[in-house]
Amino acid sequence: MQRRMEYCPVTAGVEAVGDRWTLLVLRELLLGSQRFNDIHRGLPGISRSLLSARLRRMRAHGLVVRDLDAGGRPAYRLTSAGAALEPLVWQLGDWARRWAFGDPVRDQLDVGWLVWRLRQFVRTEALPQRRVVVELALGREGVEQEERGWLVLSRPADDVSACRVHPGHEVDVWVNADSVEMHRVIAGTTTLEAARRAGHVRISGDPGLAAAFPHWFSWRTPTG
């Protein structure tokens, strides 16, 4: 006879969110992604069919709903139950930084992933009224050619873009950085200011915009 799940809230919680991809899909939704392609872009390694299956499972558990956005396109949104998991998601990341996290290995250095994360961190209310184009040039040891990505920043939030090809607009701000160190900044194991002081990150271009650049993003804060 098949044994029923034990009567324990921890067991029930693991049943709802205890696989790898469910928590990562929650992370993407918490970071503002709503459309399927945006969620998929933030999850390297997941197939589209598996993502569809996870979203269906999350709907069945009452964590997300699927409806239409203002443009009539399908969108996924967190329910109250799903949104209530936000502290769990970020506390898990804080725990990992302290106990189970190191520097990125070569295969984890991905400029496409990095500019997408920066796009998700953008604080649109802090952006200037004009469009700003940021070019990131990331170098790494043993590789002569820098990898490049671009951010097109403007209000509203839907107009913020992360690009792997030049967007065709004049660049206003250049960020030249060591790839490993910039990935550490994004992951919250160091700060942008510390990386700049150490000479790993250089920000140049329009003086006013370059000075304001650090304030346009909600950076993850390193924890003890």
Results as ranks from 00 to 15, higher is better:
9 P>K: 06
214 P>F: 01
211 A>C: 07
113 W>P: 01
68 L>K: 07
175 V>M: 09
113 W>E: 11
91 Q>L: 14
94 D>T: 02
70 A>G: 09
102 G>S: 02
145 Q>Y: 11
199 G>Q: 05
183 H>T: 12
187 A>Q: 10
36 F>W: 00
110 D>F: 01
101 F>P: 00
128 P>L: 01
126 A>R: 14
81 A>L: 08
88 L>H: 08
159 D>K: 15
65 V>E: 14
12 A>Q: 10
168 G>R: 02
89 V>P: 04
131 R>T: 14
210 A>I: 04
81 A>I: 00
204 S>K: 12
147 E>V: 13
63 L>P: 02
150 W>C: 04
12 A>I: 03
65 V>L: 10
93 G>A: 14
68 L>Q: 12
2 Q>K: 13
125 E>C: 06
157 A>G: 05
20 R>E: 01
130 R>H: 10
215 H>D: 06
156 P>H: 04
101 F>Y: 09
33 S>I: 09
156 P>I: 01
5 M>F: 03
158 D>A: 06
181 E>K: 08
194 A>H: 12
70 A>S: 15
13 G>Q: 10
125 E>K: 10
59 R>G: 11
59 R>H: 05
73 R>F: 05
58 M>Q: 06
33 S>H: 12
104 P>H: 04
31 L>T: 01
204 S>I: 06
76 Y>I: 00
195 A>T: 06
5 M>A: 08
221 T>V: 13
196 R>I: 13
165 V>C: 00
155 R>H: 12
24 L>V: 07
153 L>K: 03
223 T>D: 05
20 R>N: 00
37 N>W: 07
67 D>N: 10
201 V>C: 03
119 R>T: 01
69 D>K: 03
206 D>L: 11
190 T>W: 10
90 W>A: 02
122 V>T: 09
57 R>I: 05
178 D>N: 13
127 L>W: 05
107 D>K: 07
146 E>D: 15
64 V>L: 06
106 R>P: 01
146 E>I: 11
192 L>E: 02
216 W>G: 00
137 A>G: 15
82 G>W: 00
189 T>D: 02
146 E>A: 13
99 W>I: 01
30 L>C: 04
74 P>C: 04
138 L>S: 11
80 S>F: 01
174 W>P: 01
181 E>V: 15
130 R>N: 07
129 Q>L: 14
156 P>K: 09
157 A>W: 13
78 L>Y: 05
48 R>L: 13
188 G>L: 09
205 G>W: 06
216 W>Y: 08
48 R>P: 01
99 W>E: 12
173 V>L: 02
72 G>P: 02
131 R>F: 05
30 L>M: 03
138 L>T: 15
193 E>C: 08
70 A>N: 08
180 V>I: 14
6 E>M: 09
